[in-house]
Amino acid sequence: MNLLKVSGSPHVHTDNSVKNIMYGVIYAMIPAMLVSVYFFGLDALRVMVLSVVACLLVEYLLQKYVVKTDVTIWDGSAIITGILLAFNVPSNLPWWIILIGAIVSIGVAKTSFGGLGKNIFNPALVGRVFLLISFPVQMTSWPVPKPIGGTALTDAVTGPTPLGIMKEGLAAGQSVQEIMPEIPNYVQNLMTGFQGGSLGEVSAIALILGAIYMLYRKIITWHTPFAYLGSVVIFSGILWLVDPTQFVDPLFHLVTGGMILGVFYMATDMVSSPMSTRGQLVFGAGAGILTILIRVFGAYPEGVSFAILIMNGFVPLIDRAFKPARFGEMVKS
């Protein structure tokens, strides 16, 4: 007989594991991946494969030769970073820019902090923002979606995103109502994917499908997305009520840009979001307000990435300030 084992309790463990969670997130992103391939063709596939392979490769090389730890590239986290990075860039991005993005994401934002679980900022977002600032031209020339077997909305090969159109129009002194006709049927198109934009921005429905799966698997909780979307609606709603000619309605903010992607897939990133549900609510609300602030008053048309990254930086403080409800803290009834 083997030696008896001695350990502290508990002696049973759930089947849940880090790998399980990570691959769950990957499964949740499959619908959005398929939709993006449908709209952008093989270009989308090229970007995604390149990005995932680059992320895996960078992580492998760093773990093997630089940090000299166990190689854990198959735990799924690098694949997620790769897909999210691909979701955040246009489909016609040159391969070397994607590689740079992967190096920044995995190398700078993740491995240099100590690997999975130690990074302060969401790696994919750091990569994306780095690319956006370093290669603004390539990163903002959005190919117009051209469904396989269908026709594109316009003859142009590339075009601005709805948010870009809005920002430029408002900057030129036009009112919202004057700009609106330039963005045909935005709600319908945005939900099913006819807008110009990065891979993951095109179809809100596919993203929400994946989010429902993650909620069902309890990979994410409702707190962060709820607070995020709620604060976006409230804050942009207030602005809209104040002056409907200068500020767009809340629905526009909800469905445009990387809002759905950011809210469900990046703000909920376990590693870089707060631990307590109270903290998650604060985190989501803060990110929502920052997003609208950047979109409406900032220089960039899109603010989700920056907002989430800024709030990532506040996570240690939020964790310190917003403790979970302790037992015995609630009033005696």
Binding site: L3, L4, K5, V6, S7, G8
Partner: peptide, 9 residues
């Protein structure tokens, strides 16, 4: 000689 095996922290 070991009589049991310890696992844990």
């Amino acid at each position: 000689p070991k009589k049991v095996m310890y696992e844990g922290a």
